[in-house]
Each structure stands twice: as structure tokens, then as C-alpha cells.
Design a protein around this nucleic acid. Structure first.
Length: 434
RNA sequence: GGGCCUGUAGUGUAGCUUGGUUUAACACAUCUGCCUGUCACGCAGAAGAUCGCCAGUUCAAAUCUGGUCGGGCCCGCCA
């Protein structure tokens, strides 16, 4: 008999069906019993009217069962439909006691993150914990779909690189035969090179690796980076406009396609009308004036400053997003284009969302000589970057791009308290398994 | 790399300040019995913990001290 999924029961009223799934729970009340079977589409309830013949008490929670029964509409059930059980059979029985209850809501379970991650796959049987990932998948899908529509080519660049090129962050060394190599911290160089190769517009969805020795609720050492790079721009603002348009589309898609998950997680989507842009200098003045901060010597917002600025923007404009622009050159990577009106500043920007940085982007330097000079200015040797610089010799168009941290974005959209909840199998300072 | 906090049945917590009425308490899960509409079912009962580990102080340590291992958060840095 063909399998019917829990989510399809209402289409089969009056029919005999076969449900297969995990045993969510049983409720035996004497002369009547209930059995809840969970599959990828949800939970179906079966009612047992002859518990003297069908004993649900022998079934083990989280075993895989097959239930055959007749579907009927029933207003005493929350979902309005249930299966009158004719037979129940255990197909696979657990060989160990489950580590903890997962059929309830998280607020009742009160699980520590560490316990969740230690039993990650099992925990994803919980509706709330698993609901994070269809939302994340929709974020990623929206990105790919939007980029393709805009004429971008999807690319995949190597995650094994020869040098710690970009500076700043620490890299994971790997032994590459007799050579020393590193895990890529970003596809930055490659996506620029592919713009110069003639594709003009490229995007990439891929893991990047950072050996930063941090332990916070917003950092993991491997994260999924949504990158794009676009050629023939007039200014960094073209990059910002693309991201705005993408954000609007993504929020629309989430509202349309992730309704249930968002409800399960009690998440509220942001409304995007317009996203304000504030120069870093002005942002620091706001912190100084309205939040009593001493911003002397600050070349970037600290986490507290990010939260305060978002608070300010929300109160004054109603936006939960804000672009911060014109960071000083010393605070940005060497390939960032300087502001022609003030060479100490860059045409680089960050996007803050609900108090947290979720994107970094900029217009890049496309002039070969300027780029080489800048590498020297940063105290590095252009010879080490020859593989990257070569294409710049043969005419690069003005270009720019950005990167979005997927897990961080997911965390902020869903209001998760720790970024690890937005990663299936997070890699952090101490966790390498599962 | 710097700072703060934390570790008690399968899970989540209380007890620790002020060492001794603690036979280490409670909730959920587990097991047994009862229950015809449960869906956080209800009721009655049972089992389950050498209080992370090691050492010290003491007549006496879950409780105090030191070390060690694990975990969480913040900062720096970043997405």
C-alpha cells in the first residue's frame, strides 16, 4: 500500500491509508488510545478505539511505526483530521533509551545548547529546532534566485588557498602535499578575478573558514558565505542598491514560503521600506551625543555601538537595517576603494541588522597601480599576490561586491540567542563533532 | 589573547552563602496499575545520583580551599 504523508491526510478523508514515521507519543486512556506519528510533513494522530486488541503501550517512543487506518474528519482533534487505527506495526525499534524528550516545545524542554549539539541529529526531530533550517534554505535559495535573475553566474572557487592573503583574520593551515596551504577565509580574490575574466557578475554560496580564537554567541569558525561581485558599477552605491533589492525579495519569499516555520519559532519578519545609510563618522557622533559613548580613536563600531546605532535608527526611521559607510582605510582590507573626496576614507560599508553586522561590502580598487601601491602601504609584498594581480594588468572594470554571513542572518531573522542554533553541525573553538 | 560565570539521577533545576535533621529535594522522561477524546492528558505507586575528576582542611564536605577537565557569556577580531 502506498505511503500517505501526515500533511496530506485531509486529502484522503474516508480512505484507508498507510502512515509510516516516527512514534511521536502515545496517550492511552483505558478504553480509547491515541498515537501520534511524525514524518517530514508533520504529525498525524491516530485514534485506537479497541485498545484491548491494539496495545499502544508496547510501542517505544521514537521507534519507526507503520499505521494503517481509515481517515476521518474529527473536530475534537486540533488538526481536524485523524486516522482510525486498524493496525500498528513497529518497523524499527530504538536500541537505546532516547537521551531526552524531544516531542515537546523547547520552552518546556529547557535544553542547554551543548546538550542539543551533542545529540544534533536526534534533536532536529524537535519541531522548533528543525524549523530553523527550511528558513535558512529559503534565504540561500532567495539569494541564488535573485542573483541569477540579475545575470550573475554561480561559481565555486577553491577553499584551499596558498597564502594568508587578506590579512586580519587567522587562517587554518593545511598540509597540501609538500606545500603549506590554508583554508580560504573568503572567496574574495577569486570572485574579483572572475569579474575580470569577463563574467562581469558572479556569485558564490560556500563555506569559509576563520581560525579566530573567539567564543561568542555570534561566531563560528566555519560559516556559509553568500558572496557576489559585480563589474561595471558607477559607485559603491550600486552594490548597496543590489543588496537592498535582494533583502526585499528575500523577506517576501520568507513570508510566502516559510509561514509555518516562522510561526513555530515565533519569529517576526522585518519590514523594509527604505534602508538608511549613515557614514561611520556620523554614526560615532550619534553614539557620542545620544548614548554617552566616548568614541575617540574608534575606527569601527564595537558590538555595543552596533546595538546602540540600530536602536537609534529604529527609533528615528523605523528601519531594522542600517548601512554604515565610509570606514577609514586602516579598518578595511587593502583592495577597498578609497573615497575620492577623502582618501583617508573608503567606499566600504557594513550592513547592520537588529544590532549585528551581517554584511561587509565595498567598491574595490580596479586600477593595477593603485592596488599594488595599496598592498605596499599595508606592509605586504605584491609578489605574494601575483596570481591575483595578473588580471588587473589586463584591464579590470570598476567593480564591487559584498558577503553575507548566512548563519548570522538566520540568527537575526529568527531571533536565535546563539549562532550555533543556525548551523547543523557548527564548528567552534572546541567543537569538531558531530 | 583578556575578563566574568558554571558543572548535582536520562533531561532541566533546588540545596552550596553560614559544613552536621539530606535517607541529596523538585519537574519532565522511564517502569507498574487505573482512566472513552488525549494532543504540556490526569490519578496512584516504583526505580533511577558514589553531587565532573583529583587532592587538601575537618570528628564530619554536594557545601570550604587548591589543582584539573568540561561548558556558557562578554571583550578584542570578524560575517
Amino acid at each position: 500500500m502506498k505511503r500517505t504523508l501526515a500533511g496530506q491526510l485531509s486529502e484522503h478523508i474516508g480512505e484507508e491509508v498507510r502512515l509510516v514515521g516516527w512514534l511521536h507519543h502515545t496517550r492511552a486512556l483505558g478504553k480509547i488510545a491515541f498515537i501520534a506519528v511524525r514524518d517530514r510533513t508533520g504529525i498525524a494522530q491516530g485514534v485506537v478505539l479497541n485498545p484491548d486488541k491494539i496495545d499502544v503501550s508496547v510501542l517505544k517512543k521514537e521507534s519507526i511505526v507503520e499505521v494503517i487506518g481509515k481517515v476521518k474528519a474529527e473536530k475534537q482533534v486540533r488538526k481536524g483530521v485523524e486516522v482510525e487505527v486498524l493496525s500498528v506495526k513497529t518497523l524499527v525499534e530504538p536500541v537505546a533509551e532516547i537521551p531526552f524528550e524531544i516531542s515537546r516545545s523547547l520552552s518546556k524542554l529547557n535544553l542547554k545548547l551543548d546538550a542539543i549539539l551533542d545529540h544534533r541529529a536526534f534533536c532536529l526531530r524537535n519541531q522548533e529546532l528543525s524549523a530553523v533550517f527550511p528558513v535558512q534554505a529559503e534565504i540561500v535559495r532567495s539569494f541564488s534566485e535573485f542573483m541569477r535573475e540579475k545575470g550573475f553566474l554561480e561559481v565555486h572557487t577553491s577553499k584551499i588557498v596558498s597564502a594568508g592573503t587578506e590579512g586580519g583574520t587567522a587562517l587554518f593551515p593545511v598540509q597540501y602535499f609538500e606545500q603549506k596551504a590554508y583554508l580560504a577565509q573568503s572567496p574574495q580574490f577569486y570572485k574579483q578575478m572572475l569579474v575580470g575574466a569577463g563574467y562581469e557578475r558572479v556569485f558564490e554560496v560556500g563555506f569559509v573558514y576563520r581560525a579566530e580564537d573567539h567564543a561568542t554567541s555570534r561566531h563560528i569558525n566555519e560559516y556559509l558565505s553568500l558572496d557576489f561581485e559585480v563589474g561595471f558599477i558607477d559607485s559603491y552605491r550600486d552594490v548597496i542598491e543590489l543588496e537592498k533589492e535582494f533583502l526585499v525579495r528575500m523577506i517576501e519569499n520568507l513570508g510566502a514560503n516559510c509561514k509555518e516555520e516562522l510561526e513555530t519559532l515565533k519569529a517576526r519578519l522585518p519590514e523594509i521600506k527604505d534602508i538608511p545609510e549613515i557614514r561611520l563618522k556620523d554614526a560615532l557622533e550619534i553614539l557620542e551625543r545620544d548614548y554617552g559613548r566616548d568614541t575617540a580613536g574608534m575606527t569601527d563600531l564595537d558590538p555595543q555601538g552596533e546595538r546602540e546605532l540600530c536602536d537609534y535608527v529604529l527609533k528615528n526611521t523605523g528601519s531594522e537595517f542600517v548601512f554604515v559607510t565610509h570606514y577609514p582605510a586602516e579598518a578595511r582590507p587593502f583592495y577597498t576603494m578609497s573615497d575620492p573626496d577623502n582618501p583617508d576614507l573608503t567606499l566600504g560599508f557594513d550592513l547592520l541588522f537588529r544590532g549585528l553586522e551581517v554584511t561587509t561590502g565595498s567598491q574595490r580598487i580596479h586600477d593595477y597601480k593603485m592596488l599594488v601601491d595599496n598592498i605596499r602601504k599595508f606592509g605586504m609584498d605584491p609578489a605574494d599576490f601575483e596570481f591575483y594581480l595578473e588580471i588587473f594588468k589586463y584591464s579590470m572594470p570598476p567593480h564591487g561586491g559584498l558577503a553575507i554571513g548566512t548563519e548570522r542572518f538566520t540568527q537575526q531573522i529568527l531571533g536565535l540567542s546563539n549562532i550555533r542554533e543556525a548551523s547543523f553541525f557548527p564548528r567552534d573553538r572546541f567543537r569538531l563533532t558531530p
